[in-house]
Amino acid sequence: MHHIDFQLDRDYVELNQLLKLAGLCDSGGAGKAMVAEGLVRVDGAVELRKTCKIRAGQTVQTGDTEIRVRD
């Protein structure tokens, strides 16, 4: 599994934007599509809310990549 540590510079980041900022997709729209297809897990559970708030301490996984959100 490939791990990415993402440094959060605010209270939260929307899930679709996190996927874009971490380099896992080209745009926020592509991130929304990934979420809608059920390809993204937050803290181990499939997340279907495209703009859910991701906060420090949470983990996002898609495919063989895991993003650890830090503050």
Rank of each mutant, 00 (worst) to 15 (best):
E14S: 10
G28T: 11
V40C: 08
L39S: 10
L18E: 03
I54S: 02
S27H: 10
L19S: 02
L24N: 08
S27A: 12
G38C: 12
C52T: 14
K32D: 11
K20W: 10
A56K: 07
G63L: 03
A30K: 15
K53N: 05
A56Q: 12
V46N: 09
D11W: 04
G38L: 09
T62H: 00
R41S: 02
R55M: 09
R55N: 07
L19E: 00
K50M: 13
I54W: 03
G23C: 12
M34W: 14
D26I: 13
V60T: 01
L8T: 00
V13Q: 08
K20T: 00
C25H: 06
E47L: 11
L19F: 00
K50Q: 14
K20S: 04
N16A: 14
K50P: 08
A22I: 06
G38D: 08
V46T: 08
Q61Y: 01
G29K: 13
S27T: 15
I67Q: 00
R41Y: 00
V46M: 07
Y12V: 06
G63T: 05
E14H: 08
G29H: 12
D64F: 00
E37V: 01
A22Q: 01
Q61A: 06
A36K: 15
D9Q: 14
A22R: 01
R41G: 00
Y12K: 06
D11N: 10
A30T: 13
R41N: 04
L24P: 07
V13F: 05
D64Y: 03
T65V: 14
K50H: 13
D11L: 05
D43T: 04
C52P: 08
V60Y: 01
G44N: 12
D11C: 04
V40K: 04
C52M: 10
A33Y: 12
V46K: 11
Q17T: 04
E47G: 10
A30M: 15
L8F: 00
T62Y: 01
D11M: 04
E14M: 11
G57A: 04
K20R: 09
M34L: 15
G57I: 05
G29T: 10
G28E: 07
Q58L: 04
Q58K: 04
K20P: 06
D26H: 15
G57D: 10
K20N: 06
V13L: 12
A56E: 11
R41P: 01
V60K: 00
L15N: 00
L18Y: 04
L21M: 14
A45M: 09
D64I: 01
R41F: 05
A36W: 05
V46W: 05
G31F: 05
D64T: 00
L21C: 10
A22F: 02
L8C: 02
L21W: 10
E66L: 08
I54K: 02
L24E: 05
L39V: 04
Y12E: 12
V42L: 11
D43K: 06
R55W: 00
V46D: 01
V42I: 07
L48Q: 13
K32Q: 15
C52K: 06
D11H: 08
V35C: 03
D9A: 09
Q58R: 11
E37R: 13
D11E: 15
R10C: 05
V60P: 01
T51C: 10
G38Y: 13
G63H: 03
